[in-house]
């Protein structure tokens, strides 16, 4: 605007602390760190499995270390947050249609949880046999 001295308000680094929805958003985004950590953790385990029974036992001892357990507990909590928020946002992000009609959001969310249960049951069956 010509000739008018406008004021630009600075944005605090902590803009996301004051409002619940912003805070949940940043927590949701921070789940990325823990997803990356779990990938690294699983790779370490697979490497140990490849190296033999002794290495695998060593890995189980490492995994039972209290520090690692705490990190993994926090990581699992963030993964659950990721799963809940991801499933919840899917019907917003996609226009899911069946036979030309929009599928209700609740049905989209429910079907994802069915997928989660099926996959989880399969993984449990596969690794424990």
């Amino acid at each position: 605007m010509n000739g008018v001295r406008t004021y630009r308000r600075p944005i605090s680094t902590w803009w996301w602390v004051g409002k619940r929805t912003y805070f949940v958003f940043v927590m949701r985004e921070l789940s990325s760190i823990f997803i990356a950590w779990l990938v690294v953790y699983l790779l370490l385990m697979i490497a140990a499995i490849g190296r033999g029974a002794d290495a695998y036992d060593d890995f189980l001892r490492f995994a039972a270390n209290p520090v690692v357990v705490v990190v993994d507990l926090v990581a699992l909590a963030f993964v659950v947050l990721h799963t809940i928020t991801w499933f919840g946002l899917t019907p917003k992000a996609m226009d899911v249609r069946a036979a030309g009609r929009p599928v209700p959001a609740a049905a989209v969310i429910a079907s994802q949880y069915v997928g989660l249960v099926v996959v989880s049951a399969f993984v449990v069956w596969l690794v424990s046999r």
């Binding site: 929805t21 912003y22 946002l89 917003k92």
Partner: peptide, 19 residues
């Protein structure tokens, strides 16, 4: 856009810009 979703929450006309 990182899908904060706040635009949709404040919209007085229920437009759902985030979607």
């Amino acid at each position: 856009c990182t899908f904060v979703g706040e635009c949709t929450r404040v919209c007085p006309k229920h437009v759902d810009p985030a979607g």
